[in-house]
Design a protein around this nucleic acid. Structure first.
Length: 430
RNA sequence: GCCGCCGUAGCUUAGUAGGUAGAGCACUCGGCUGUUAACCGAGCGGUCGUCGGUUCAAAUCCGACCAGCGGCGCCA
């Protein structure tokens, strides 16, 4: 058995080959039948003739329909008339299943494709995206392994909220009300005390009723936490990680990016270091950039887009005022009180926020004060508070939306196409 | 949570002075010796999202509901 990729590489030219796959296109004309076959490695045209197969067998072949599953035997030839440059002269074939009526035709709407996502995933477009997704997941892990991080896992069923309570998915846990994880951050902070540098790739669940092309209800969250790291140290690992992921995709998925009509030059440009802008600095430039913003205003989606057009690579926005990040674990910058040692990373071309991170409060008194400030019950966070009681150390971390990275790298319209089975506010199937 | 948009055959859609729904693709049958999401001919396929109202008559006008898509907010 051979792969279509082998045929397209030229290594089987003139030889016998057997391929197994699915009918991508089929055309027939009396005594000839052209079948374009796909497998996971590519597509190739095969031709059957009455001369070699006989009338009955040719008719059987010509009678096949889109996405029927088959095995083909034949001689590989170079042929300019075939779109991929190669062609199989069919000498024998086996039909595994002939489809009566495949639902997807050349006319298809967005909603319909989401309803039959389980079949649409077979398309060349989705196949290319899923190959890139595979590379992105591996590259993220490889980068952190190479930097001396350990991979670990937190629970997905939790009793402690990381973000605000309003975005929690409630769950009945044998009578106790708990929820699905919004982040693995607190558990990474625990593991950090033994492993020092840790990362995880896990789903996060947010019950935000977001109706935008950049939100998923269930998304893949790549998070890391590192002991002895300040805000700037963390950003240095992050920018090199982003560069590494993009290099890997450019190297391994060039054909896929081209098929997706991605402008490769936009990705070739992405090299660390990335520019850093303090929030206060950004507010000074806001006037020049036509943003009607003053200190204390949050950056909305429109503002993010307006900022990223001034850069050809991702940009860090740091030192947000504490009023804009109402979470209890961010550490204040002692040099600029009221501003946090935190950062967001905004992807270019209008894709916007892909990372949120920063330095965590590691002093017990500061943490207890903040829990009070945000009306949180310290007992609910007893284990998180304990981390500040016993051998606490300075540390930083971040969370990256892997689906958002894939959305950006592939240059997609909507983040839904960056994940095989998107969960949005109104979609739970397939 | 706020705002906007859409729903006609399996799919993509046409269809208002309100008068019993038309096409392309898919599928089935036939034709074609080099096709590139081929072409030619025939056939199959619709309670016009649901419920109610106005009317002699509703895909079309009105109301409610259901389903989905998008923008903001929030975030990754």
């Amino acid at each position: 058995m051979n792969s279509i990729g082998e045929i397209l590489s030229g290594s089987l030219t003139g030889k016998q080959a057997e391929i197994r796959g699915w009918v991508y296109r089929i055309r027939s004309s009396g005594s000839l039948c052209f079948i374009v076959v796909r497998d996971s490695s590519g597509i190739v045209q095969a031709v059957g003739s009455k001369e070699t197969l006989g009338e009955a067998r040719l008719k059987e072949l010509a009678n096949l329909t889109i996405e029927s599953s088959i095995a083909l035997n034949g001689t590989v030839k170079e042929d300019k008339r075939s779109s991929g440059g190669y062609e199989i002269q069919i000498s024998d074939f086996k039909i595994f299943q002939r489809n009566e009526n495949y639902p997807i035709t050349k006319d298809k709407g967005e909603e319909f494709l989401l309803d039959i996502r389980h079949l649409w995933l077979r398309s060349r477009e989705m196949t290319s995206i899923m190959k890139i997704r595979s590379t992105v997941f591996k590259a993220f892990s490889d980068f952190f392994y190479n930097e001396g991080y350990y991979q670990t896992q937190g629970p997905m069923m939790v009793a402690t909220a990381t973000e605000g309570g309003s975005t929690l998915f409630k769950l009945d846990f044998f009578g106790e009300e708990i929820s699905l994880a919004q982040s693995s951050q607190f558990y990474l902070e625990v593991m950090m005390f033994s492993l020092e540098k840790v990362f995880t790739i896990a789903p996060s669940f947010r019950a935000e009723k977001s109706r935008t092309r950049r939100h998923l209800t269930e998304y893949w969250h790549a998070e890391a936490e590192a002991a002895w790291y300040g805000n700037e140290d963390m950003m240095r690992d992050e920018e090199r990680m982003i560069e590494y992921i993009i290099r890997q995709v450019l190297e391994k998925n060039r054909e896929d990016l081209i098929f997706l009509k991605r402008d490769l030059s936009k990705l070739e440009n992405i090299r660390a270091p990335f520019p850093r802008m303090r929030y206060s600095e950004l507010m000074k430039k806001a006037g020049d950039w036509g943003l009607g913003l003053k200190y204390g205003d949050d950056l909305g989606a429109d503002e993010e887009r307006a900022i990223t057009v001034h850069f050809d690579k991702p940009v860090f926005v740091t030192h947000y005022p504490d009023t804009l990040k109402p979470t209890f674990y961010h550490r204040e910058d002692p040099e600029t009180p009221g501003e946090l040692l935190c950062h967001d990373l905004l992807a270019p071309e209008g894709y916007g926020e892909i990372i949120g991170g920063g330095e965590r409060i590691w002093n017990l008194a500061d943490l207890e004060e903040n829990l009070k400030k945000y009306n949180l019950n310290p007992e609910d966070y007893y284990w998180y508070v304990d981390l500040r009681k016993y051998g606490s150390v300075p540390h930083s971390g971040f969370g990256l939306g892997l689906d958002r990275v894939i959305w950006w790298i592939c240059g997609l319209e909507t983040i839904r196409d960056a994940i095989p089975f998107p969960r949005t506010i109104r979609r739970t199937r397939p």
